[in-house]
Simulated assay, not measured.
Amino acid sequence: MASHRRFPQPGLAARTTRVTVLSAAAAATAALSGGAAQIAAADPAGPAPDHASQLDRLDHLYQQAEQATQRYDAAQERATRLRTELSALQDRAAKGQHQVNRLRDELGALAASQYRDGVLDPSLVLLLSESPADYLDHVSTVNRIGDQQAGRLRQLQEAERALERQRHQAAAKLAELRQAGILLQDRKKAVQRSLASAQRILNTLSRAQRAEYLPGAGLRASRDRPLPAFADFPASSGRAALAVAAARSVVGAPYVWGGTGPHAFDCSGLMVYAYRQAGVALPRTSQEQLNSGTHVPLDRARPGDLVLYRGDASHVGMYVGGGQVVHAPYPGARVRYDPVGMMPITAVTRPAG
């Protein structure tokens, strides 16, 4: 395969080192759960786990982290949507308040004018009350008000009712946003726990073993299964070709969970970024990306198609031809090329557009 421009990484090595050190420190002080706790509690004098079992455990932890990352991404997307909706509701409420104030000013001016003329209609005293709607429920009051005044009063009534609805909606949306924030923090902690446990295992591997590690290198991998012969198809569309070019251009960028570019990515964030450069909006999570287009057979894959991995579609890469994908593998690694069969494949999706 032809060489490709590597992503510029000024200062990334230093930042990655700091993150690794912090992750290791957090892992050493945090309470571990599940299999990670068993590793920590193992008898130091007992036999060390063999390399294959370590890789299997590492695969499992990275799978947990990626599943938690996709849930985090979904919660983050929901929180962003809720913030946008809350802002729109607050804007409408502000406009509604302005309209109520304007109508009250007009009615106040009318009352003042009648007062100066000495013919103040008693019902106008009610126009500036806190609840003019109460008086409209009494036909006798409406009958004492002229058509113009009654029309203005009804406008004020409708404006105040609309304003009250908007305030209730904004309050409910704010409460929903607060709950989304709590969920976001919980999912963030779940990612961090899995990554801290994975870092503990990585620290037991030699530099050569870490360099050779591929996600899915253990029993869950599909690389030993026969794969179809891949035809040398072009990209399915001009937009797909642009997305492939965008994905290739960031090879070497670091994996950061929650990242959507332009300098760091998680697996689904890389797909979002690449297709955004082509003018196509993909859903945020890999599970949503699974159904973001047409499913095609693996042997008909074309550059730009999304390859979804594992039964829960918790990982995604972009097919770029030659039996390879570009993907953001896992924390500590960088965006890179890997064989398309590196993990069990769930589906191949060709994005719409």
Rank of each mutant, 00 (worst) to 15 (best):
R78Y: 08
A93T: 03
D105G: 09
Q99C: 11
S87C: 05
Q97E: 10
L103I: 03
K95N: 09
A79M: 08
V100R: 06
E85D: 09
K95Q: 13
A79H: 05
R83C: 08
L103R: 05
L103Q: 04
E77R: 07
V100Y: 04
L107G: 02
A79F: 13
K95L: 10
L107R: 00
E77C: 13
L82W: 04
A79G: 04
G96Q: 04
A79E: 03
A88S: 12
S87T: 15
S87R: 12
Q99E: 11
L82S: 00
T80C: 02
R104Q: 07
L107M: 06
A88E: 08
L89R: 08
D105A: 13
L89E: 02
L107S: 02
K95T: 05
E85P: 05
E85S: 06
R104N: 02
S87M: 09
L89K: 09
G96H: 06
S87E: 12
D91Y: 15
T80A: 11
D91L: 15
A88Y: 11
G96F: 10
A88P: 06
R92T: 04
L89D: 00
S87I: 13
D91R: 15
Q90K: 13
Q90E: 13
E85H: 10
L86C: 05
V100K: 04
E106N: 02
A88I: 05
R83E: 11
L86M: 06
R78W: 06
Q99V: 14
R92Q: 07
E85C: 00
T84H: 09
R92P: 01
T80K: 03
L103M: 03
T84Y: 07
S87K: 14
R81N: 07
H98N: 09
D105S: 11
K95V: 03
H98I: 07
A88T: 14
R81A: 08
L107Y: 02
L82V: 01
L86K: 10
R78I: 11
N101Q: 13
D105H: 14
E106S: 03
G96M: 07
A94G: 10
Q90I: 05
Q99G: 08
D91G: 13
K95R: 13
A94E: 12
V100W: 03
A93G: 08
D105L: 10
V100T: 01
Q99A: 14
L82C: 00
D105V: 10
D105K: 14
D105Q: 12
H98C: 05
E77K: 11
R78V: 12
L86Q: 04
L89G: 03
L82D: 01
H98W: 11
E85A: 08
N101C: 04
R83I: 11
T80H: 09
T84K: 11
Q97H: 08
R78S: 08
A94P: 08
Q97D: 06
R92D: 04
E106L: 05
R81S: 10
E85Q: 12
L82A: 01
E106W: 06
L107K: 00
T84S: 09
A94L: 12
S87F: 14
R78T: 12
D105F: 15
H98K: 14
